[in-house]
Design a binder for these strands. Structure first.
Length: 109
DNA sequence: GCAATGACTGGAG
DNA sequence: CCTCCAGCCATTG
């Protein structure tokens, strides 16, 4: 499917996110050149389960660092668990010190 | 093809 | 830092 092309772009970036780091949908969308399509990034993540290799979607949060996509995970608490497992502290479904853990695509590539 | 939906964002309070 | 409003864009019914 040609549309997969767009999704794979998102997956490729997300897979490059270092452990213990997080990024926002807008940052990915902007990096891909589809800044206005920030929602599409999230939409692509919704289909990340169909992508291979697996995509660490738990490292992708909204601009506030809120785990908005945890409900779309296999288990809502899985996302938080994975992040904490990587050293990212989560409180009230949001990343602690999010701006410090923020990672921009292409920044350290 | 139009209307509704959504893992969003920026600006203002 | 958080909440509310309006704008954007691709996918789906």
């Amino acid at each position: 499917m040609d549309k997969e092309n767009f999704f794979e772009r998102v997956y490729e970036v997300v897979r490059q996110i270092p452990p213990g780091r997080v990024t926002s949908y807008g940052a990915i969308a902007e990096f891909l050149g589809t800044k206005g399509s920030s929602r599409m990034v999230g939409y692509a993540m919704n289909a990340c389960g169909t992508a291979w290799p697996p995509v660490p979607a738990h490292r992708v949060v909204n601009r506030r660092g809120l785990l908005t996509g945890k409900r779309s995970f296999s288990s809502p608490q899985l996302m938080q668990q994975l992040l904490e497992s990587e050293g990212v502290k989560i409180e009230n479904d949001k990343v602690v010190d999010f701006k410090s853990l923020f990672w921009q695509p292409g920044a350290e590539l």
